[in-house]
Design a protein around this nucleic acid. Sequence first.
RNA 1: GCUCCCAUGGUCUAGAGGCCUAGGACACCGCCCUUUCAAGGCGGCAACACGGGUUCGAAUCCCGUUGGGAGCGCCA
Length: 486
Amino acid sequence: MNTPDKVRVRIAPSPTGNCHVGTARTALYNMLFARKYGGKFVLRIDDTDLQRSTKESEEGVLEGLRWLNIKWDEGPDVGGPYAPYRQMERQHTYRQVAEQLMAQGDAYHCYCTPEELEAERKAALAEGRPPRYSGKCARLTDEERARLDASGAKRVVRLKVPETTLSFVDLVRGEQHKNMAERGDFVIIKSDGSPVYNFATVVDEHLMEITHVFRAVEHLTNTFDQLAVYHAMGWAPPQFGHLTLMLNPDRTKISKRAGAVYIGEFREMGYLPEALVNFLALLGWNPGTDQEIFSMDQLVEAFSVETLSKSDAIFDIKKLDWFNGVYIRSLTVADLASRVKPFMEKAGFDVSDQARLEAAVSLITDRINKLTEAPDMIGFLFTKEIEISSDAFLGKGKIGPDQAREALARSREALAALKEWEHETVESALRGLADQMRWKAGDLLMQVRIAITGRRVTPPLFESLVLLGKDESLRRIGQALAVLGD
RNA sequence: GCUCCCAUGGUCUAGAGGCCUAGGACACCGCCCUUUCAAGGCGGCAACACGGGUUCGAAUCCCGUUGGGAGCGCCA
């Protein structure tokens, strides 16, 4: 791989309103590469032909990338020396290049209708031939063209594709060849005057002086079409590297039906951006060591084109969950609290007391893998009304209603007698009581746990009691007794 | 149909001819710890798609088969 003095890479998403994980991963790799070699990372919006593309839909993509801490040096929002960065704003450039190609005799107008072409394609497929444009419009005489133009026939511009074999060295897959004889002349400018992707992208890459193009494998075979344009224009192509696909568990291309695919969805599901980045980085690339946890800076340091993988990878959300848990546990309490906060608010809890929130959060760092799990875990500390059903107390048939009632009544008594409401005092009171009653401490604590939280799975009990406060704790035990019908 | 790409446990992968009795991680299972649940520690289950070559020796190289994928658009 050659790394020119100034590396320039790019990501060219379509403004679809959402940032797809695939786009995010490709953007990540490009950014890592740029930073690794001290180059520039360009964000360009590929909005040709997307009538519905709006400012908002573009913003959705940028927002997803920003959330992941993927930053670009040039783009529609930040500008740059190669502006504009939206293809819609570069239309005249594409047309100019197409004009030049026509003037050189490397491109021509084609008047075939979509219906004709479709029929030809079908016929070819039916006969087992690769679908290929016949090139008949290239043979039109000047008079025929004049007549067609006068009649107002729609026309596109096609590139004359030489019948030779084109080659390039793919940065991840090595040498690639394709015999263009079977390709046929393809469209570069549509009848509405807008450029086709394979054409626009070449013009942009060249004018923006992109040196390396890392993109998904679906573009591997497109590369030859693009090469044809580079050759016709006498431009030196950049180096290409084709990245693997991300797959659903059934090995089909990752899609909505199998789960989340947009960055915003992962955010809502309670994933941390740094965890998603780490996970995505390792899905299609590996550091060549056993290290799995990487900060963004470490990724930049470790990234290498040589270890980009060649085979597609299944997106395993279970592994993402693990990464997320690791990152949650690595956060400071204050940081975790601020990230948990919006999820608590969304669940309807008043978490304006920052100190209380932090105290509560510190109890669950080891207990959650996703931020969305927090409200369930610590919600009882931020509300007056917890729901308890009498069934909750009857653990595995071991403890009957009478026993539960006795346990709670005596617990309330023992706790009420406490002068100091602290972890140690609360703990010894309850453990002492369990001894007296000849209960296993765990059984007694479970009764109290349910009484104050309404659940069997909760943060540690003594800490919870302390945070709840004596009055509220006693009140809830009383309330539980009422539920049990004392 | 044609062209091209890919192929190590359920999943992500290490492995660039002998270091492989195939390593790590997730998931799963078990044990320990333990006030629930986790987290943590320890241990376990589990793979070179198949068939031919080449070689003293192949997960690693070659060919074929099979399986999966991409492209062949006035989509990007």
